[in-house]
C-alpha cells in the first residue's frame, strides 16, 4: 500500500518528518522520549566493537572459552555480559590458515549489535551487499586485502535470524600477551571479515610496552 506522500523530500524535510512522528507518538503517550534518549546513549557510547574485541581476545587466550564460543556463540558471548537486541542468536566462525570468513546481509543489513555496535554505512550499502556474495575477493581488495587463491573464502549471508561474528586469527608475535593487551589489536573490520587484527609490533610501540 502506498501513500501519496512526497518521495523527493529534501533532507530538511526528513528531519521534520522524524520530529513530527516522535512528537505525535509522544502526544499519544505511545513513546517515552527519555527512553529514546537512553537508547541513543547506549548505542552511541556503550555498545560497540570493543565488546566483540573482548570476546575475541578471550578466545585467543582461553582454549576452553574458544571451544564454547565456536559451539554455542550466544551462551559464550553472554558469559562476558553481551546479549540482546540483534544478537539474540549468535554464530561465531573461525578464520584459519586455510579459511577466511566474511559477513554480509544481502537482504537488509543484519549485524551483531551487542558485539559490534551499529553497522557502518558501507555495510548497509548496495555496493557491499550486492558484491560480497558474487565477488568476495574483489571486495576484499577494496579493503586492501589480497588472499591467496589457495585460501577458501567463506561468505556468510546472515539474512535469517542468526547473527555472525568472525573470530580472526591471533596475530603472530603475541605469545605471552595478556587478554587486555590483545583486545587492543582486534579491529571491527577483522570481526566482519574485511580486515585483519592489528599486527603486534606497532601496537607494542603504541602501548609503550
Amino acid at each position: 500500500m502506498s501513500h501519496d506522500h512526497d518521495h523527493t523530500d529534501p533532507p530538511e524535510d526528513i528531519e521534520l518528518r522524524v520530529k513530527a512522528l516522535e512528537s505525535v507518538l509522544a502526544d499519544k503517550g505511545l513513546i517515552d522520549t527519555s527512553a529514546l534518549d537512553e537508547l541513543i546513549d547506549l548505542y552511541e557510547t556503550k555498545i560497540g566493537p570493543r565488546n566483540g574485541a573482548k570476546v575475541v581476545a578471550k578466545a585467543w587466550t582461553d582454549p576452553d572459552y574458544r571451544q564454547r564460543l565456536l559451539s554455542d556463540g550466544t551462551a559464550a558471548i553472554k558469559e562476558l555480559g553481551f546479549s540482546g537486541v540483534q544478537g539474540e542468536d549468535m554464530v561465531v566462525v573461525e578464520n584459519t590458515p586455510d579459511v577466511h570468513n566474511m559477513i554480509v546481509c544481502t537482504l537488509c543489513s543484519c549485524y551483531p549489535w551487542p558485539t559490534l555496535g551499529l553497522p557502518p554505512a558501507w555495510f548497509k550499502s548496495a555496493p557491499y551487499r550486492s558484491r560480497v556474495v558474487i565477488d568476495p575477493r574483489g571486495v576484499l581488495k577494496e579493503f586492501g586485502i589480497s588472499l591467496s587463491a589457495e585460501k577458501e573464502v567463506r561468505v556468510w549471508d546472515s539474512s535469517a535470524e542468526l547473527r555472525y561474528l568472525v573470530l580472526p586469527e591471533r596475530p603472530a608475535g603475541t605469545d605471552g600477551w595478556q587478554e587486555d593487551q590483545l583486545v587492543e589489536l582486534v579491529t571491527r573490520d577483522s570481526m566482519i571479515g574485511v580486515g585483519f587484527p592489528k599486527s603486534a609490533p606497532d601496537n607494542h610501540q603504541q602501548a609503550g610496552a
Partner: peptide, 21 residues
C-alpha cells in the same frame, strides 16, 4: 500496549526478542 520507559531500556536491550521458538 506497553510503553518502553527509560527504566526498562537496559533490560530490553540486553534481552532482545529472539525469533527462536
Amino acid at each position: 500496549m506497553p510503553v518502553v520507559t527509560k527504566d526498562i531500556v537496559p533490560l530490553l536491550v540486553q534481552t532482545g526478542a529472539s525469533a527462536r521458538v
